[in-house]
Amino acid sequence: MSAAIETDVAIIGAGPIGLFAVFELGLLDLKCHLIDILDRAGGQCTELYPEKPIYDIPGLPIVTGQELVNRLLEQVKPFNPQFHFGEMATRLEKLEDGRWKLATDAGTEIIAGVVVIAAGAGSFMPKRPPVPGIEAFENAGDGVGVHYAVRKMETFRGKNILIAGGGDSALDWVINLAPLAKSLTLVHHRDGFRAAAHSVNQMRELEAAGKVKFHVASVKAIHGEPGKMTGVTLAGHDKSEWQQDADAFLPFFGLTIKLGPIAEFGINLHENLIPVDTARFESQTPGIFAIGDINTYAGKLKLILSGFHEAALMAQAAFHVCRPNEKLRFQYTTSSSNLQKKLGVS
């Protein structure tokens, strides 16, 4: 593990509100590191609706989720934010000097005076099929049990593999794993696929060649001991059920949002939201701020524009936490040559 990174502010979540926080903090000379479980900036805007027009951003009568994120990235560029993509913030501890140490599942450690949680509804995580006891077969080891992603294809060599789903991930892995599996079965709820046509064609060829079995079916039960999966019960739409050997089960139903490890940070939560005051947008743990969809207060509206406002006020409060001995002078970007210099426009 490399040495911990020291910065002013650690932001959890690189969605629109986390990005705008970089801007507001940057105007006050506070440097930011951002952590996001996704592999790029934008959060729900780019993950769920990149092409969907948004009509209620002040000054932008119509803008898509992707365009808004692109513009925010351009806006924060002068402040050189450091992104840690594909990482989940998993642990938060207070240091003796009053600062915070935030750790991720990838081993990154960030020491910061202030932590800003701008995590929306939480982390994007793979959808877990409603199969009783499925949790017990997760994290069972390489190539066996339930996996929501393929990290090393080799670990699945010689295994009986069951894949569920009809999107691009499901079919890509059918095509890639079929040559090295002992057997590969695909189950999906219909005889049709969302995946790209050329992937579907390849899958059909593998099926015709006897290398892949396809059933219109769903997984009803997993058999074996926790950590040692032996097979599954499949069910068709006609309710017929049958059993099949399987060493590994790979469900690919995309992502859903779960609060995740933030719930374990020791911050006071109300119905999975972080209560904050509306002057500072600070949680009930001093030094931990929460902005955007993740917070709650009287009159809260889950709107991007509200999150922008929250980011601006949070930044003022965060400055005093990070720089207790300095005076904060409020300035406008329209008139302050100091701010314009930071923005690289004067």
Binding site: P129, G165, G167, H188, S218, F253
Partner: peptide, 15 residues
């Protein structure tokens, strides 16, 4: 919608 239902869990004919 039919395509997006491929990302839903426990899909039935009346989903």
């Amino acid at each position: 919608e039919i395509d997006m239902l491929d990302m839903a869990l426990a899909v039935e004919p009346n989903s």
